[in-house]
């Protein structure tokens, strides 16, 4: 007693204090429920409510500008660690009508100025191997073994350094049915490959023959299979899974 945490009061006062507290409590519950409804009833921005999209874009800004470092690489493994059977998880953009013989990589240097490159021309560049834990946005991962040309080597060789000061790189499949946009910082990461081999052999058709992207600092959805066109842009290029509610950045 005599403690200022304790006070003798009338039953009426107790009742009033209790009622007041619970009235505020219920108002807050109702407020929270309305807040939840409000979020879910907002207009959609690429598959999710606008407020959620705004925060995801904020996350992208934070992680791409302040957390991402080209010095942080996906852990490298030895070829023996790689799984022999690589999971195939999607075939968007891999239509049957693909004419492999006629394929050339198209690099849009600027509108109306497109570079056409054959697979042999790409293979003439230094070959880089990447063996890493491939992470799918679904939550599984697999140690897989890829080889190809570092995107940064490719940029230097074909004098795309001016273009690569732009914010984003866009990639499309030849049929334009699958497309991704990637921040230039991530695509210039030393582990990012224009990849033409898996487990030491040419890419299988279902892994994007003849050339695909391998970008270990991103989820699998960004590793576009069968590159048709590459272009540079200061605004976000179209992105297949972004349009379906996923995070644009999808960086690891």
């Amino acid at each position: 007693m005599g403690n200022n945490n304790e006070k003798i009061v009338s039953s009426k006062e107790i009742r009033n204090k209790t009622l007041l507290a619970f009235a505020i409590f219920f108002l807050l519950i109702i407020g929270a429920l309305f807040g939840w409804r409000w979020i879910n009833n907002q207009p959609q921005d690429n598959g999710i409510p606008t407020p959620l999209r705004a925060v995801l874009n904020g996350n992208e800004n934070l992680f791409s500008n302040y957390i991402y470092s080209p010095d942080n690489s996906s852990k490298a493994y030895s070829p023996a660690d790689a799984v022999p059977r690589v999971r195939v998880n999607g075939d968007a953009g891999l239509g049957d009508d693909f004419d492999a013989a006629a394929w050339k990589l198209q690099v849009v240097r600027k509108p109306g100025d497109t570079l056409f490159l054959s697979l042999d021309e790409i293979k003439a560049l230094p070959k880089t191997e990447v063996i890493f834990d491939f992470k799918c946005i679904e939550g599984w991962s697999q140690i897989t073994h890829w080889s190809g040309v570092k995107f940064s080597d490719f940029v230097n060789k074909y004098q795309l350094t001016n273009q690569s000061t732009m914010n984003y790189v866009g990639l499309n499949t030849p049929d334009k049915k699958y497309y991704v946009g990637i921040d230039t910082r991530s695509i210039l990461h030393p582990q990012t490959l224009l990849c033409y081999e898996m487990n030491g052999k040419p890419l299988p058709m279902n892994q994007g023959y003849p050339l695909r992207l391998i970008i270990p600092v991103k989820y699998g959805i960004k590793h576009l299979k069968r590159i048709g066109t590459i272009f540079f842009s200061n605004t976000k290029p179209k992105d297949y899974w972004y349009e379906r509610g996923y995070d644009y950045y999808s960086g690891l």
């Binding site: 959620l52 925060v55 995801l56 679904e138 509610g245 995070d247």
Partner: peptide, 14 residues
Amino acid sequence: RLAEGMSLHFVFMW
């Protein structure tokens, strides 16, 4: 509902 789940998770995590 993976996309929806991820969008909520990476907002409310803050």
